[in-house]
Computed example of a mutant assay.
Amino acid sequence: MLKYRVITALILIPIVIAALFLLPPLGFAIVTLAVCMLAAWEWGPLAGFSSPSQRIWGALLCGLVLVLMLWAIPAYNRSIHLTVIALPLWAAVVWWLLALVLVLFYPSSAAWWKHSRLLKALFGVVTIIPFFWGMFALRLHGYEQDPHQGAWWLLYVMLLVWGADSGAYVFGKMFGKNKLAPKVSPGKTWEGLIGGLLTAALISWLFSRYAPLTVVPSSLLICTVIAALASVLGDLTESMFKREAGIKDSGNLIPGHGGILDRIDSLTAAVPVFACLMLLVFY
């Protein structure tokens, strides 16, 4: 299994980086939309929609909503402050604060949502739609001045999430004793969380020093710590929904890694939260 994970990662990482820097905004939006539709397909069983037809309709509906929202953006104005972009980002902040409460009080918190397919589908909407707009907003940030500026920001968030996850894994294996959320994800520890945050802080320092980006270090640090914490919450939240649905992996599209949701669960929280803080609060 580890061999497949490493091989797949070595193939996917260069593809992702190439997509960030080489695709034009429209091409990037289409690729991200396709990822979101696949994530919506995989969310179906988590919400109680297990039949192929239900999952297909869910994916198509997700794609239609995103296309209509993209259509509503004026060609001459792609400001982050447009309602169609800003509203999903703020919705993400509210949703992930609610998700924190759900995770902290699980399994008792599941009593009021586990029997409602509509409510679980809504949780999927506020997970996937803001993720798309966080990706889109960061990619287009400063595009007129430098077409690659937004790509650097997205690469930063991705490295932050991957680094925090790797740091948490290593520190958890070496020092982990105190469980972080045993009823949701027994493998995660407080020691791993601290290790992940330290790794994220190192990445933040390296990026602020060597990457071609201009940002106030204190603002970057705040956004980085909150985004790193959000990434852990994203992982825990998907684990909670999978546990409630009796599912180990969200899918099997990626050899050795499970499904799309299994790979982007941390990003679905970190990307829109980081975009909201960096572009709407501190910028």
Score class of each variant (00 low, 15 high):
Trp133Met: 06
Leu38Arg: 04
Gly256Asn: 09
Ser219Pro: 02
Val281Asp: 05
Leu118Gly: 14
Ser185Thr: 04
Gly259Gln: 02
Gly246Asp: 08
Leu98Gln: 09
Ile15Cys: 14
Val125Phe: 15
Ala181Asn: 10
Val215Gly: 01
Trp113Lys: 10
His257Arg: 03
Leu70Asp: 04
Val161Gln: 12
Leu12Lys: 13
Ala227Pro: 00
Asp262Met: 10
Ala245Arg: 04
Trp96Ser: 12
Asn178Thr: 15
Leu140Asp: 08
Phe282His: 10
Gly234Asn: 10
Pro130Phe: 15
Leu98Val: 13
Ala99Leu: 11
Ile7Met: 13
Trp153Asp: 11
His148Pro: 00
Ala227Met: 05
Leu68Val: 10
Glu244Tyr: 01
Trp41Leu: 15
Glu191Gly: 01
Tyr4Asn: 15
Leu33Glu: 04
Val65Arg: 11
Ala19Ile: 05
Gly163Asn: 06
Ser108Gln: 15
Val101Asp: 03
Val125Thr: 10
Leu206Met: 10
Ile30Cys: 06
Val84Gln: 00
Gly44Asp: 05
Val6Glu: 07
Leu118Ile: 11
Phe274Pro: 11
Pro147Tyr: 08
Ser79Pro: 00
Phe207Lys: 06
Leu267Glu: 07
Leu261Val: 05
Phe28Asn: 05
Val215Tyr: 04
Trp112Ser: 15
Val184Met: 11
Lys173Ser: 06
Gly163Trp: 01
Pro74Asn: 04
Leu87Thr: 01
Ser266Pro: 06
Val101Cys: 12
Tyr169Arg: 06
Gln145Val: 08
Leu87Met: 15
Leu213Cys: 03
Leu60Phe: 02
Gly187Met: 00
Ile264Asn: 13
Lys248Trp: 12
Ser116Gln: 01
Ala201Cys: 05
Ser204Arg: 09
Val225Cys: 06
Ile30Lys: 07
Tyr156Val: 03
Ser185Leu: 12
Glu244Phe: 03
Tyr143Glu: 13
Val215Asn: 02
Asp249Ala: 09
Trp162Asn: 09
Arg263Pro: 07
Gly176Asp: 00
Gly142Val: 08
Leu154Lys: 10
Pro24Asn: 14
Asp249Val: 11
Arg78Ile: 05
